[in-house]
Design a protein around this nucleic acid. Structure first.
Length: 724
RNA sequence: CCGCCUGUAGCUCAGCGGGACAGAGCAACGGACUUCUAAUCCGUGGGUCAGAGGUUCGAGUCCUCUCAGGCGGACCA
């Protein structure tokens, strides 16, 4: 964008003048955007701290620089203000012209391949609004990186061998049939039939989403399993049995065969056949995964790769990572003490962990199984291209085409399509000879892991492991994008309890706190699809409520969807990442004020101007060819404020990515919408008969419309409906 | 006990390279639709930026301490 370009050249001119006139070579010249427009378009406060160094009055320094610098042509006026601020005014028409010509700044940073890992929902139940925060933040990061010109690969990690999937399988195999029937909303029948009915909820492929899917069944089932564990120790032993079966794998059994074996076991009263249990577990994990993909598709979120934890294990990634760690002396086998029999990574030598009581992290349990952190180290090494064998050859997964998806616009929903058309979503496989034509994955120069802040400690361990294996730069390029959790306000908890007709049994103490933590184990939470449905309904009501007697528009569903997605994505993006997001229905369903629909409305309103302009005057958007017609026209302050803000996009995106604080981007977009809404009343376009004035307004609003399209649709993933 | 995060208007939050009068939204009250859609705009009221020290020409912003809350420091993830 032009502003950073002009600023860089102005800063260079300033630095040169400082050196030539005052013999001072500054480390860095920082030009900022002043808080008020009457203080100029760019400002340099640097004369104030220099006063002491140069032993001159700050105003004198600023005045000397102002007079002597060879300013770039876009700088129209320079003034010294207050105690010694140097304020610059830009050539407004010139900046406007550049924006209309769509000039962009240079490439951002070094163009390394970047992997972003996000979503990562345990495939044992439906996604909830906490997962939405993860996915939206991750997706906005991806969009911003791509917007800055970087190659980005999006990975959604599937923990398909963990205990949580096993718990659901335990529920299917061992909870009373009445429980299963309850969760299905069905009459109790024989267990194998209930299992088959549950599995039948999975439509195959990536479903069209919405509620009452397989993941919703698991959402209901899972808390019943954990509750039973708590009251019955014997029941808990089923978990180990299932985990054992999952570890051994289904041995080539498909789902049909597994179900048949399970049916046979029920009829014969035999113990569960291990391979069939593993087959069922695989089906549960995969069905939930596809439900998650469908949920995220509604928000326009797609992925490149689904790395499976089971493949990391089967392909010996962990074994190799373990060897590398052992060879480098980073881990050791504890012979005694509380960690006896475990392989631990010593963190004592790392200054970051020095203050800890027990600066060791267990990677291999005394029973020989690897912890999640251990697996994550192997995965991280692979992502960075650092998991190599003794000959230096990279370890890699096998890959298969999992699905194909398409998107009609940058903020449109993702649609999973058949037959190899569209973008390929790949899955890892355990057969390394399986390749996908022309595709390669991992081996990134930079890796972002979008994971909530509660996992900061294991994430630091992973990073430290990369470092001690002799890859300090790669460790520095491994970024934990940490964000605070989404919790529920007590009011939201009451709404859910009322709606579902159940009680979570929370104590008065818990309900007196400002927020209640969500818990899949206890079934406390708002499911993502459920919330999206509520949002869509509320949006429809809002549309109908504003119709004022007119007939219902044909595209009402599409409009409502866009508004719901806008409200949701903005809600997740606008808040600073290290603050707990206390979810409240009233607040989340607000469509006025500082909300997604407010931003969308500004874009719709602006686009509408051009529709009416076309219809009534035959004039369209302002094109760069018309620029000469603006010669000699002064851009008034208020319109200029909007233009200058539009010019700042690149700065804002770079700052947001640098600090991983996308509330900056949300806020900037909100500010822009706000400026437009204010101008809307004072600067009518269609009714304006003065051609020159109309041209100027067309020019400014053309820039605004284009800018909002990029900010909302491309970067924030918020669709702009045709009408609202 | 140790580490990280948070504390700004009644409520939810901005203010993340120290800088020029501390901002939005919600809620309250009062205005503006024969006009390019009022999901908008304008106005009013509302703040010892948790507290105390310090650094600086200048501190909501940086440092130290105190207080309050949250999260980590698992052979859970």
């Amino acid at each position: 964008m032009p502003l950073n370009d002009i600023r860089d050249r102005a800063a260079a001119a300033l630095a040169a003048a400082l050196e030539a006139e005052l013999g001072h070579r500054p480390d860095e010249v920082v030009l900022e955007v002043p808080p008020r427009r009457d203080l100029g378009d760019l400002a340099w406060p640097g004369a104030l701290p220099l006063a002491r160094v140069l032993k001159r009055a700050p105003r004198q320094i600023a005045e000397t620089v102002a007079a002597q610098a060879v300013w770039p042509p876009e700088v129209r006026k320079v003034e010294v203000a207050g105690p010694g601020f140097l304020n610059l005014w830009l050539d407004r028409t010139e900046v406007l012209g550049r924006l209309l010509r769509g000039e962009h700044g240079g490439v951002f940073g070094s163009a390394v391949k970047t992997v972003v890992e996000h979503t990562n929902i345990n495939p044992n139940k439906a996604a909830h609004i906490g997962h939405l925060r993860n996915a939206v933040l991750g997706d906005v990061l991806v969009r911003c990186l791509a917007g800055l010109g970087l190659e980005v690969e999006v990975q959604n990690y599937v923990d398909d061998t963990g205990v949580q999937v096993a718990d659901v399988v335990v529920g299917l195999l061992h909870l009373p049939e009445t429980d299963l029937a309850d969760c299905l909303g069905d009459e109790p029948v024989r267990r194998d039939e209930l299992i088959e009915r549950a599995i039948a909820l999975d439509s195959g492929g990536v479903p069209d989403a919405a509620t009452d899917d397989f993941d919703d069944f698991c959402w209901a089932l899972y808390p019943r399993v954990t509750a039973r564990y708590a009251e019955d120790d014997a029941f808990r032993e089923h978990r180990a049995e299932v985990l054992h079966a999952v570890e051994a794998g289904p041995g080539g059994l498909d789902l049909e065969q597994s179900l048949a074996l399970l049916r046979g076991a029920v009829i014969g009263g035999d113990p569960w056949p291990q391979r069939a249990v593993a087959g069922l577990a695989a089906a549960v994990a995969d069905a939930n995964l596809r439900c998650h993909l469908a949920t995220m598709a509604r928000l326009g979120i797609g992925y490149d790769l689904l790395p499976h934890e089971s493949d990391i294990l089967r392909l010996g990634f962990w074994r190799r990572a373990f060897d590398l760690l052992r060879e480098s002396g980073a881990i050791r086998l504890e012979a005694e003490g509380k960690n006896a029999g475990c392989w631990v990574m010593s963190l004592a030598a790392s200054p970051e962990f020095a203050d800890m009581d027990d600066p060791d992290k267990i990677l291999v349990r005394s029973n020989g199984t690897v912890t999640y952190t251990g697996k994550d180290i192997a995965y991280q090494l692979w992502k960075l291209g650092l998991l190599v064998d003794a000959d230096g050859a990279r370890f890699d997964f096998g890959y298969r085409r999992y699905a194909d998806w398409r998107q009609d616009g940058p903020a449109e929903p993702v649609r999973y399509v058949g037959g190899g058309e569209g973008r390929c979503l790949a899955s890892t496989t355990a057969a390394p000879e399986q390749r996908l034509e022309g595709r390669s994955f991992g081996a990134a120069g930079r890796v972002y892991n979008v994971i909530d802040v509660r996992q900061a400690y294991p994430q630091r361990v992973v990073k430290e492991a990369v470092r001690v294996l002799g890859h300090p730069e790669a460790a520095d390029s491994s970024v934990h994008f940490a964000y605070e959790m989404v919790a529920l306000t007590p009011a939201a908890v009451r709404v859910i309890e009322q709606r579902s007709g159940t009680s979570f049994g929370l104590s008065d103490d818990e309900m007196a706190k400002p927020y209640v933590e969500m818990s899949g184990r206890r079934g406390i939470g708002v499911r993502a699809d459920e919330f999206l449905d509520v949002l869509v309904d509320a949006a429809e009501d809002a549309i109908v409520g504003r119709l004022d007697g007119a007939g219902e528009p044909a595209d009402i569903a599409e409009r409502a969807r866009a508004i719901a997605v806008g409200a949701l994505r903005y809600l997740m993006a606008r808040q600073s990442r290290n603050r707990v997001l206390a979810f409240d229905f009233d607040e989340a369903l607000a469509f006025e004020g500082d909300t997604g629909p407010y931003l969308q409305y500004s874009a719709v309103r602006a686009a509408k101007i051009f529709d009416k302009l076309e219809a009534r005057r035959g004039e369209g958007r302002f094109s760069a060819d018309e620029l000469p017609s603006l010669a000699g026209l002064e851009v008034p302050d208020d319109l200029w404020g909007l233009v200058l803000e539009c010019a700042r996009r690149r700065d804002v995106v770079a700052q947001a990515v640098g600090s991983l604080e996308f509330s900056l981007l949300a806020q900037h977009t909100h500010g822009l919408a706000q400026l437009f809404h204010r101008l809307y009343h004072a600067h009518p376009v269609v009714p304006e008969d003065d051609a020159a004035l109309r041209a100027l307004r067309r020019a400014v609003f053309t820039v605004f419309v284009g800018e909002m399209r990029v900010l909302l649709e491309e970067l924030l993933g918020i669709p702009i409906p045709g009408e609202m």
